[in-house]
Design a protein around this nucleic acid. Structure first.
Lengths: 139, 139
DNA sequence: TATTGTTATACTCTATAACTATA
DNA sequence: TATAGTTATAGAGTATAACAATA
C-alpha cells in the first residue's frame, strides 16, 4: 500500500460500483436525493425540514422542494410539531416504507447476482475485506 | 457468502464509503461530469463527441454542452477529423492534463489518509480484494 | 437517406435572497 | 430579534426535437 496507484484505482472502483448499486431502484420515478431522504426517514424515524437539510447537507429550500416531491408521490406526510409551531415534522407513509424495502431488496438482489459471478476464492477474499471496508466507511 | 446478511452489509458499507469519497470535493471549479470526460481524455486520448457521449452514457447534446464548458475553461480543444468532415475530435490541453493530475491527487488524498489508519494486515486484506472489487464494478 | 454535431427548448436539482409565521 | 419554513428566481446539467453539414 506504499504505492499511490492502488488507492487511486481502488477508490475509482468503489465509486463506480456504488454508482451501479445506486442505479438499482424500485423504479425511476424518484431521484437520488429523494431516495436518500426516504431511507433516512425509514431508518431513523420522523425529522423536521431543518434536521433533514442539515443531515443531507442541502439548503432548507432544496430540502423543502425534495419533501414536496415525496409528499406529492405519497411517500411522506407533513405534520405539525407539538412543541414549536414553526416546525414541520416529516414522516414516512406506508407506501414510502414499502418503496424503501422494495428498493433495498432490488439492490441486494443485483449485488448478490454479481457476487455469484465470482469464483469461490474471490468471494473468500472479498468476505475477508468486508470488515475492513466497513471500518473505512465509518472512520 | 451463502448468507444474505453479508452481501447486504457489504453493499451498505461500499455505498457509505463511496458517499464519503464523493463528499471530498476540495475546491473544484468543474463538475463531476466534466471531470469524468477530462479524465477519459487524459487516460485514453482524443475522442469524438459521439464517442464521449456513448462512453459517458449521456446524449450528444449534453456532451456537446459539457465539451463547450471544458473548452471555455481551456482544458480541451476541438479539432477536425481527417477522415470525416462531420466529426469533431476533442483533445485535452496541457492545462487540462495538469488539472486532472492535481484534482485526482486531491481526491486520492482523503482516501490515502483513511488507508493509513488501517493495520498492515488490514491493508494486505484490502489489497487482495482490490482486484475483486474492480471486477465487480466492471461486471 | 443516414449520420455527426449543434441549437432550441424544457425539466430537475441546486443555490441565494426575500418573505411569512412563530418564538 | 431570531428561527423554521416557504416562495421567487437563477444557474448547472440533462433530455427530446429540430436543424445544418457531410457521407
Amino acid at each position: 500500500m506504499s504505492e499511490e496507484v492502488i488507492p487511486h484505482e481502488l477508490r475509482l472502483a468503489i465509486m463506480r460500483l456504488a454508482r451501479r448499486l445506486r442505479a438499482q431502484k424500485a423504479d425511476d420515478t424518484i431521484s437520488d436525493s429523494q431516495m436518500s431522504v426516504l431511507a433516512k426517514l425509514h431508518h431513523e424515524g420522523a425529522h423536521t425540514i431543518g434536521q433533514l437539510s442539515e443531515g443531507e447537507k442541502v439548503t432548507p429550500p432544496s430540502m423543502n422542494r425534495t419533501v414536496n416531491s415525496l409528499e406529492t408521490a405519497g411517500y411522506v406526510a407533513r405534520g405539525a410539531a407539538p412543541d414549536d409551531g414553526r416546525k414541520v415534522v416529516v414522516t414516512i407513509t406506508a407506501a414510502g416504507t414499502e418503496f424503501v424495502q422494495q428498493t433495498q431488496s432490488r439492490r441486494d438482489a443485483w449485488f448478490v447476482s454479481r457476487l455469484e459471478q465470482l469464483t469461490p476464492d474471490q468471494r473468500t477474499t472479498l468476505d475477508a475485506a468486508a470488515s475492513v471496508i466497513r471500518e473505512l466507511a465509518d472512520s
